[in-house]
């Protein structure tokens, strides 16, 4: 990666296009077994086991959501308590100032709201989205990745990356085509 404002040049990687999910999954698994570490696969729908095949297993989202949920719940309860007990106590219908059963619905809603925001924003942030530009979009047929084609890219920054070897390796899996991906 180059510095800010400097165009990045060179090769991002080599991409292979497949016509079915099983071929992609097999290729990805073989690539990992071959020792490649920097790669990614693209498919028009989630494929079970594909993320593990490209060497990725933990999403890290559960912790984010649980933390946000607990914070939201405690925060919502505290808000009601602080507003109606400490900051501006009011006698309503003879109910106690600290009417804790009445704080529960709002505490619950706040817990859900924050947890849901955590799930969505956490997913986007950890995935690095939004990202309007990505080298794979330079591939002519990559728009088929959102229709019915499957792609596997082996990145140039992989220590094992040797252009000819990678091309030969990908060719073994009977891809529709193998092309270089420029930055």
């Amino acid at each position: 990666m180059g510095g800010i404002g400097k165009p990045i040049t060179g090769l991002y990687g080599v991409i292979a296009e497949f016509s079915d999910a099983q071929a992609l999954l097999d290729a990805a698994n073989s690539a990992r077994e071959e020792g490649y570490t920097e790669m990614d696969a693209f498919s028009p729908f989630p494929i079970h086991g594909l993320a593990e095949a490209v060497g990725f297993a933990k999403t890290g989202l559960s912790a984010v959501v649980l933390t946000m949920g607990i914070l939201g719940g405690i925060g919502g309860f505290f808000m009601c308590w602080y507003a109606n007990v400490i900051s501006y106590p009011l006698n309503i219908g003879g109910k106690p100032y600290n009417s804790w059963p009445a704080w529960i619905p709002i505490a619950f809603e706040c817990a859900i709201l924050l947890a849901a925001l955590g799930a969505v924003l956490g997913m986007l942030a950890l995935n690095g989205l939004p990202m309007p530009y990505h080298p794979v979009f330079n591939v002519r047929r990559f728009d088929q990745a959102s229709r019915d084609k499957f792609f596997l890219v082996l990145q140039a920054r992989d220590p094992k990356f040797q252009l000819d070897e990678v091309r030969d390796f990908l060719d073994k899996f009977n891809p529709r085509e193998v092309v270089d991906v420029p930055w």
Partner: peptide, 14 residues
């Protein structure tokens, strides 16, 4: 948002 169907993205997405 620049969605590209990456396997890693799908996993987190799901």
């Amino acid at each position: 948002l620049g969605w590209r169907g990456s396997a890693k993205h799908w996993l987190r997405y799901e």
